[in-house]
Lab assay of single mutants.
Amino acid sequence: QIFVKTLMGKTITLEVELSDTIDNVKAKIQDKEGIPPDQQRLIFAGKQLEDGRTLSDYNIQKESTLHLVL
């Protein structure tokens, strides 16, 4: 699992595989929060994550926290 922190300070827990693409992750956030993926920007280690890449491409591990910017 990974964590996604919103600017409102809310933390969302997502069940993911490290082979999941950023697209997949955004879809899971949409399922939980109702935010359309095209409005989501995910940040990790100061970098904006690109849709076609996977979590492992960015060296994101289990229990990592991503930041969601709208």
Rank of each mutant, 00 (worst) to 15 (best):
K32C: 12
D20A: 11
S19Y: 09
D31F: 05
K28C: 12
I29W: 00
T13H: 13
V69H: 08
Q48T: 14
I2F: 02
T65V: 14
L42K: 00
L66W: 01
L18V: 04
R41F: 10
D57C: 09
Q61D: 14
K5Y: 12
D31R: 05
A27G: 06
L7C: 15
Q40W: 15
F3P: 00
L55Q: 00
I29F: 05
I2N: 00
I35V: 06
K5P: 00
L66G: 01
E63Y: 06
P36Q: 08
I29Y: 02
M8K: 09
S64C: 08
L70P: 11
K47H: 14
V69W: 02
Q1S: 06
D51T: 03
S56E: 12
E33L: 01
F44D: 14
R41L: 14
Y58V: 13
H67V: 14
Q1T: 13
D31W: 01
V16E: 01
E63W: 07
E50I: 11
L14E: 00
Q39R: 15
H67E: 15
P36S: 08
F44I: 03
L18D: 06
T13Y: 09
R53I: 13
A27C: 09
Q48R: 04
P36C: 04
N24H: 07
L70Q: 15
G46N: 12
K62F: 09
V16S: 10
K28W: 10
D51L: 05
T11R: 11
G46D: 14
K28F: 10
F3C: 06
E63K: 10
L42N: 00
I22G: 07
V25P: 00
S56R: 03
T65H: 11
T6D: 14
E63F: 11
E17N: 07
I43P: 01
T21K: 12
L68N: 15
Q48K: 01
L66S: 15
Q39S: 04
S64R: 06
V16R: 01
Q39N: 02
V16N: 03
G9Q: 11
R41M: 13
I60C: 09
R41T: 14
E17S: 06
F3W: 03
K10R: 06
I2D: 00
T6M: 04
I60S: 06
L70T: 10
T13N: 13
G46T: 08
D38Y: 02
I2H: 00
L55N: 00
Q61I: 13
D51P: 09
F44N: 12
R41P: 02
L42G: 00
D57H: 13
E33A: 03
Q48H: 11
G46Q: 13
L14Y: 08
D38E: 01
E15G: 10
T13R: 14
A45D: 15
Q40Y: 02
G9K: 06
V16D: 01
L49C: 11
L42M: 13
I22M: 02
D31Q: 07
V4G: 00
K32Y: 10
